[in-house]
Design a protein around this nucleic acid. Sequence first.
DNA 1: GTAATCATAT
Length: 414
Amino acid sequence: MIAQCWRSWPGLIDACVDEIVVHDLCRFAMLLKPRPWGTAVNGVALWQVFELVRAQEWYTADLSTYLKLLTMLAKAKQAAEASNVFDCLLEDKLRPTTAIFTALLTVFTQSNQFKKALEIFESMRLYEGCVPDKYTYTAMIKGCCEAGLYVQARKIFDEMMIEGVKPSIVTYNILIHGYGKAGLFREVERVLSTMEANNVAPDTVTWNTLIRVFGLNCKIPEMEQAYEGLLRQGLQPDMVTLNSLISAYGTAGLFEKMESVTQYMQRYNYPMTRITYNIIMEAYGRAGMVDQMEETWKRMKAEFVKPNSSTFCSMLSAYGRHGYWHNVEKVMRQARYFDAADTAVYNAAIDAFQRAQNFEDMEKIFEEMKLKGHAPDDVTYSILIGAYERIRRVDKARDLQEEWNGSVKECEAE
DNA sequence: GTAATCATAT
C-alpha cells in the first residue's frame, strides 16, 4: 500500500493515509531513489507524508520514529529536511537524546555539509543528557575523513580518549580507512599501535581495509603482508578480501595473480558476484584488453549474474578510451535491456563519442538522456564543455555552461 | 544509530 501511494503521489496519498502506520515510514527509505529529472523531489514528498501522518489524530510522538526518519534522510542525503524534523521533535515535546543528535549530524556528514555537523556536535551538550558517546564520536570521525580533514579527525579522536569514551573497533577501522585512502601510512601505523596498546585485535574488516588501502596505493608487497596477517590470525578471507585483492592486482596489471585469486574463489566455492565481475571487467577494460573484458562479460551473462550501471560504465569507458566507439550503441542497448542506464552510463557513452570526435552521436545521446529523465550532472557538463572547448566551439561551450548554471540554480531553489 | 569490495570527467 505504501508503495502504491508512493508511485501515484500525490493523487492517491490522501485516500490511503489512514492505512499508513508511522512505523511504516521507514519503508520509504527503500523507495528513495535518485529523482528523475524534472519531477518532484522525493524528499519533499517524504516530508509531506510525515506532515500528513503527524496531523492524524491517532499520531503519537515517538523518538524511535524520529530516529528512523533521520536515518532515512541521511541515507537519501536529504539534509534540507533534517532541521525541520528536529524542530518537529521539539514541538512534539520529546526530549532529544544522544542517539537523535548522532543521527541528525550524520545527515549532514553524509550530505557533504561537515560544518553543519560540527555545529550540531559542539552544541548538543546544551541539551540535558546529550553527551557524545562512541557512536557520536565515530560518526564525526567518519565525517572528518570523508571531508579530507585528517587533522580534525585526529583531534576528535583525542577528545574521545580524554573524555574516557572507549573507541570501538569500528572507530579504529574508520580511521585506518580514512588515513590509508589518503596515503597517510604513518598515521595508519599509529592507529594500529593504539589498537594494540588498548588490546583491541584487528578483525576481518581491519585486515580488509588494510588490503584495500595498500592496493589503492599500489603497495602490492604490503598488501600481501596484510593478507598473510589475516591468515596468521586464523581468520578466513571473505568476499571483500578477495575482491579487494582482485581489484589491486587488476589495476597493477598483475593479471596472472588476479586470475589466481579468481581460481581460488572457484576452488573454495566463493560465489562470483556482480562486484567481482565488475572489478575484473574494469581492470581488463582499463588496460585495453578488450577481448578479455568481453570474455568476462560473456561469462557473467552465462552465469546469470545481473549487471548494473557500473558494469556498463566500465565497458563504455574501455571502448571509448581504446577507440571502439562503434560499440557504444550496442552497449547502450544492453544497458537499457538490463534497466541499468543511468546518468553515469550516459556520461560514459557521451565521453566515448566525444573521444572519437563524433559530435553528432554525442549530442543525440545527450538528448536521449534528458528525454528519459536522467539528470545531467557536473560530470556530464564537464565532458561536453571540455569537448567543445577543445574544438574551439566557444558558442556551444558557453550555451552548455549556461544550461549547467541554470540546472544548478534549479537544485538550489529546492 | 556506527565499519570494509565495483563505474562515468579534468
